[in-house]
Design a protein around this nucleic acid. Sequence first.
DNA 1: TGGAATGTTCGGCT
DNA 2: AAGCCGAACATTCC
Length: 277
Amino acid sequence: MPELPEVETIVRGLRAALIGRGIEEAGFGHRDFLRTPAARIARALQGAVIQDIRRAGKHIVFAIEKRGEKFWWIVHLGMTGQFVIEPTGSEPRPHTHAWIELKGGRDSLRYTDIRRFGRMELVVCEDPSALPARLARLGPEPLEIAEADFVERLLARKARVKALLLDQRFLRGLGNIYADEILFRAGLHPAALGSRVSRPRASALWRAIREVLEEAIAHGGSSISDYVDASGQAGSFQDLHRVYGRAGEPCLSCGAVLRRGIVAGRGTTFCPRCQHK
DNA sequence: TGGAATGTTCGGCT
DNA sequence: AAGCCGAACATTCC
């Protein structure tokens, strides 16, 4: 479910509700998605205060403070993970595997994940200005990289552009939906090789990345099957998808039948007439 | 019933 | 090294 626009939307909702809040207690159901033992996470979170919440690619990073000790609590939502703030007494939805009860007794942050591809990890924060090691491998943020840097990065690689967009070390935060939408807008074939893309087309790709992501964030992300924001609301950008989920339907700009194939191991929908190698 | 699904990682191959 | 592929993870939904 969660690519950059979805995670960004969730993080904005979490920030509005949780910055400065204290944690009463944390509990876990299934534990096989935890990279840190449940007891250690629960102990660190109990009585701690949420100081900050940020997005790093598709990761959510909570800065937690407890009696002068600082922690990073890092969450990746995988394919079906959801973070929703709900009334503490309400019935947890099926597949709720973590619950964080907030001070005040009224609301809880609950983590629900049908497939349990998501991951949670707690790391002691030695230096608040440094990155947790896990995040150090990630490439630049797509909305922050300068055009010239992006073009050089792309032309230096011989992999297919779709594979590059999905590679979190190339850019952090894109996934299958937005890779397809971006390539369509840039008029670029998913199997085009990075090093073979013309400079004007590479610039068009950089612009398409910004356009698609900014529009998607403005629409609260794409809800295909599972995604909801921190208040449980679906997004609406799926209504504006031009290729994802539209294989066999006509291209909205030329009318050709959109084709579906496998690129970089993922289902890929594109217009055979508008998108060029 | 088999296959595919918004993701990541690992091992093997070229 | 770089890139590609398939498999694995777990569950649901056609």
